[in-house]
Design a protein around this nucleic acid. Structure first.
Lengths: 340, 340
DNA sequence: TTGGGATATGAAAGCGGTTTCATACTATAC
DNA sequence: GTATAGTATGAAACCGCTTTCATATCCCAA
């Protein structure tokens, strides 16, 4: 008769279970973790007690005692791009229902902030880490991987073989450009993404390769630097027109830029696809409903996020896993047509 | 000479600090939490020791001992809408840099999953909760608020006065419709959102009120039920045309639907805005770069997310806070013009 | 029967903090 | 100069679980 009852919302602990099942807390812990063989009778007794009392292990006690935190860190870059958002969504959706909860931290594309965010995540003792895009330098990442299971999505890290999920940007860009070439285009402009971003670089390379394979001379004047945003698309067209070079097709580094370009063309009374074909990259939701619907290179963002979550969980539990291939896929719609 | 050194990555604990500063761990804890006055000498000694040894309190030990978890739960609905995503972004960005980390859980618009997600969050002993949209029934939410600090964004919950951040959807819809009316339109169609979604209902009401105030008879045939997606917009136009009722303007429940509608119009050779004006809701990024740029009602998603995070943190720390007003804002672009 | 190797189980020592409680030390009042 | 009320501080209990270590059982070979 110590405390006058009224525990109301008191959480049931491992001790309660132990008492109820008539075993020691050690045993309860054992059946909880399957760590050591336990006599079948006791095991069921414990299990029943847990069910009856609606027991839920305290995550904090658990992790304090050295166990896992059942927590996964996601490092994003606050860009709000449909691609990265899609990845996050995939991760999130795959994680709900599992025993893992995702903690998000954001790097805002700035290394210092990224480091800090990483610190936070590590400080929270996450069981694993998912890097969504970003461009933290290698050395930083190197020992990260040694400390805890990591997976990178939408980014290729050379040393992280088999822990990276990404689409081949070069190949996607190649397909896009090649599609235009097959339609008879020869004067193909390209609006790049943020110039030193790996994706931009690869897409530019793919563009060049397609040109080369078709024996079309690469022309510096056909390149406009963009920023992955809509405004870039608008500006690029203005620049392009001011150079008074002919072009019959445009490959934009992403859909949003393509939308901007398409708008600028519209303003100039240049019709798409009759006068100019245009192709984007990402195949974001809105691409299907643009006027005209935008031909684009699809990146399976959500699927990648899901696969990343799966892979990481397996990695954490030391199970073998396989990373599916994510080929870029050309989605042909109505913004591209044969050159006149 | 107990352990042969080589602690390598051993974490420094409160005990190490205590030893170093020549005080008891209790004292260290006290300066850590500012809970009890501590002599100035010792305080600085402790502080210095902490700095020197690069001490970081273990979150799990802390929460186990009854403290806070410095964790905030975010319950989203996996809709991938730019509005909800924007809110999440705002929350996330405002939380990075603070001592709080966000844990996301997703309800996927399904009550059962939502409950489960909520359970997870509560099980993780989050210090506070942010509800992003969603439509969990009241009774469930009622005792939630009693258990921990809560804030709802993009959703109005009657009993939660001063813990909800939302834009007045009815008013926004009114403004949109009224804008069309002021341009001389009388035959205004409306494509709704998911019919029983509160936002849809309010937007429909705003539409009706605008009509009423302008003495335009409400016509059931001018309404098309949509689903907040692009396809709905396309279908709606087809339906509308098949009814062979004239309309000179369309108010779509969100931008994506507006894009769909605009596309369907384009296919029919009906030009926007010359033949038909069109207006959306959300003002998502792509609206500015649609052809023509879409007039829309802006919801300051990111700002709302930020404000929600701010409010919740203050609520947790029992500080007073103020929730700013988020008026819908009509962004007039080129998809609307005077009726011919 | 007895000794030895498994096997199951409980007691107890952490994990890294917070908090209660008692104590030692000051300052204030009579 | 002693009684009284504060104050600062340390010791120890505790949060809920994992894990090591020792003990108790049991089975089988000798």
């Amino acid at each position: 008769m110590k405390k006058p009852a009224a525990p109301s919302r008191k959480n049931v602990t491992i001790n309660d279970i132990a008492r109820q099942a008539n075993v020691s807390k050690s045993t309860v812990s054992r059946v909880l973790n399957d760590s050591t063989p336990v006599n079948e009778d006791k095991r069921t007794a414990v299990l029943e007690a847990m069910k009856a009392m609606n027991f839920e292990p305290n995550i904090f006690a658990r992790s304090l005692a050295g166990g896992q935190t059942k927590t996964i860190g996601i490092l994003t870059q606050n860009i709000g791009s449909p691609f990265y958002d899609g990845i996050s969504q995939g991760v999130l959706s795959r994680l709900t229902g599992t025993s893992y909860s995702p903690i998000f931290a954001d790097g805002q594309w700035k290394p210092e902030i990224g480091y800090a965010a990483l610190e936070t995540l590590v400080g929270r003792k996450v069981d694993g880490l998912i890097l969504v895009g970003g461009r933290l330098p290698m050395d930083q990442l190197q020992d990260l991987r040694e400390r805890l299971p990591c997976v990178a999505v939408g980014r290729k890290i050379d040393e992280w073989e088999s822990q990276c999920l990404y689409v081949d940007n070069e190949e996607g860009a190649f397909q896009a450009t090649n599609h235009l070439i097959e339609l008879g285009h020869r004067k193909i402009a390209h609006i790049t993404g943020i110039i030193d971003h790996p994706d931009s670089i690869h897409r530019l390379e793919g563009y060049k390769r397609a040109l080369q394979e078709a024996s079309i001379a690469f022309d510096e004047d056909m390149i406009c630097e963009g920023l992955f945003d809509g405004e870039s698309g608008v500006k690029a067209i203005e620049t392009l027109l001011s150079r008074s070079k002919d072009f019959t097709a445009i490959f934009a580094a992403n859909d949003l830029t393509a939308f901007g370009a398409r708008l600028a063309l519209y303003r100039q009374g240049i019709s798409v696809p009759e006068d100019v074909s245009i192709i984007g990259f990402d195949d974001q939701l809105e691409a299907s409903f643009a006027t005209p619907p935008l031909t684009s290179v699809r990146q399976p963002a959500k699927e990648m996020g899901e696969a990343a979550a799966d892979a990481l969980v397996k990695l954490i539990n030391k199970q073998s896993y396989e990373i599916p291939d994510f080929p870029p896929e050309l989605i042909i719609r109505e913004s591209t047509q044969e050159v006149k």
